[in-house]
Design a protein around this nucleic acid. Sequence first.
RNA 1: GGCCCCGUAGUUCAAUGGAUAGAAUAGAAGUUUCCUAAACUUUAGAUGCAAGUUCGAUUCUUGCCGGGGCUACCA
Length: 593
Amino acid sequence: MQLIKLLDEKVKSAVFSIYGAQLEQVEFQPTRKDFEGDITVVVFPMLRTVKGNPVEIGTKIGAHLQETVSEIASFNVVKGFLNLVVADSYYLEFFNSIFHKEQYGFASANSKPAMMVEYSSPNTNKPLHLGHIRNNLLGYAVAEILKAAGHKVYKTQIINDRGIHICKSMLAWQKSGKGETPESSGLKGDHLVGKYYVAFDKVYKAEVAALEAEGVATEEAKKNAPILQEAQDMLRKWESGDETVVALWKQMNSWVYAGFDTTYKNMGVDFDQLYYESDTYLLGKDVVSDGLKKGVFYKKEDGSVWIDLSNEGLDEKIVLRADGTAVYMTQDIGTALQRVTDFPDVNGMVYTVGNEQDYHFKVLFLILKKLGYHWADTLYHLSYGMVDLPSGKMKSREGTVVDADDLIRNMEATAEELSKELGKLEGYTEDEKRGLYSTIGLGALKYYILKVDPKKRILFNPEESVDFQGNTGPFVQYTYARIQSILRKASDFDADAIVDTTMSLHEKEKALLKHIQLFPGKVLEAAENYSPALIANYIYDLVKAFNSFYQQVPILGTSEEQARNFRIQLSKKVGTVIQNGFQLLGIVVPNRM
RNA sequence: GGCCCCGUAGUUCAAUGGAUAGAAUAGAAGUUUCCUAAACUUUAGAUGCAAGUUCGAUUCUUGCCGGGGCUACCA
């Protein structure tokens, strides 16, 4: 970053002194590995300002830079690309300047406005599945990245704890549960409740089929199945505050929360502030009447309230039912306002929600804007692709899901199996080993999900296990562990030594330093794009470069003392960057594996 | 039908409009008396199709083809 800033000025003044022309901006890119050089200036865009042959222009600028800028050791020009070779001393000075910064790459805390990141937001009628895992990992990682970019961040979720879905589980439990509890059944609370959600659907389908057999039309049968009507009745009772129903609702939700807490803990995600739909679903109604007065909304004959977005290329959208009750949109308007009230310092909210709701959020943000809330422009829908199975979409009701708890357990089991096969853990206690299996298994899973661009849909084949080799979490973790091993063995090295900047660098060392230098910029880029994938890919490249260095250059075996010490320091620094980068992804790195 | 997203090696992923499109995996061939071989090195293999803008297009525009999603007084 610093280098580019410096060169930007130098190139501009070079062009000015040679051609008397003022460049708007200079285009840089890292030099491709097939060419000699470290950083490349692209000459083509300059042709708009400076007339002439690109090679000739590049050569003149290169010569001028070599003469006047001490950091530039030499240059070459290929077609319209001016490749600059940066002096080793520059990189060594850079290394000295960052070596002691433990938080290297992170902007100073709270130097930017506070933001709120919403993620997870599950329904409370069934356990979490792979889709939720992607949501949680993305939301958590984006929150961490925003923090690293200097924002204060509040992590939040809205728990969808009311509605017909939870009544379905409640009803089925009431009918056939025989008082079963997590304790009596040995089932995790969310799994127990999910079991009854599936049970409801089974009865419901049977009833629909029975009605159809009697000659009732499918649509009618779906509406009139007795058990569904009972569930709707239960929801009405809940809304009117029926004591028995509310008590049952509280009990079943408490089971689910306990289950979710375990899953969140295992996944390593957390929240600063929770919102419950049962508290917020009535919010937003005042805003609607306010909007009516302002003329943002309009009322239809039946009393329902709408917004017309056809001028924006969207449809009409309902914001309040004819009977005056709130819909999804009403609630989301209210919740947004609530959050702004609760956290006045927040400037920017991120909603981590699947791309099936792209339209909903487009409309929500537009409505808030039309209502005149200045902060509407700071809202962002972090939309991500679905996680599908080869058989299609996951459906909890039909049991075709990859359960979050099962998957995590499987990943840990695979890690255990592999670790035992390799047998490198003598001296570890059983507890330490179990901790490590979890670190590796989760690392593999998290990396697998996060390295993919959020927008892209993931096809997950449960038959093919998630890899532990190649571009994977364990690959990165392994490299980190090897670095720690070096540091353990190098007890004699001087961690405070200032590197002699007149030393000449090995090609692999220079490659590493160049890469390390990119880290702070990469963090900012990831924050701007809300993309943990950028961090994952960056760390992967860094690790590749380190492994290549490790393989080809002796570290502890270096005969020259200064060079040896530098190589250990360099390894240590690479380790810190790996650790810091993986921390942003919520992945732990082990000292041994 | 309308609107949105996605099409890159067999497979899973990369590439602010820039050089000969990078990796991993699966395939082929190598590297352990030496810092952890979950590694390293070599090899073969891809931009859905057709136009346009540009000095230059995987990237931007349009059309077509393929996959997914949204288009509820459910959330």
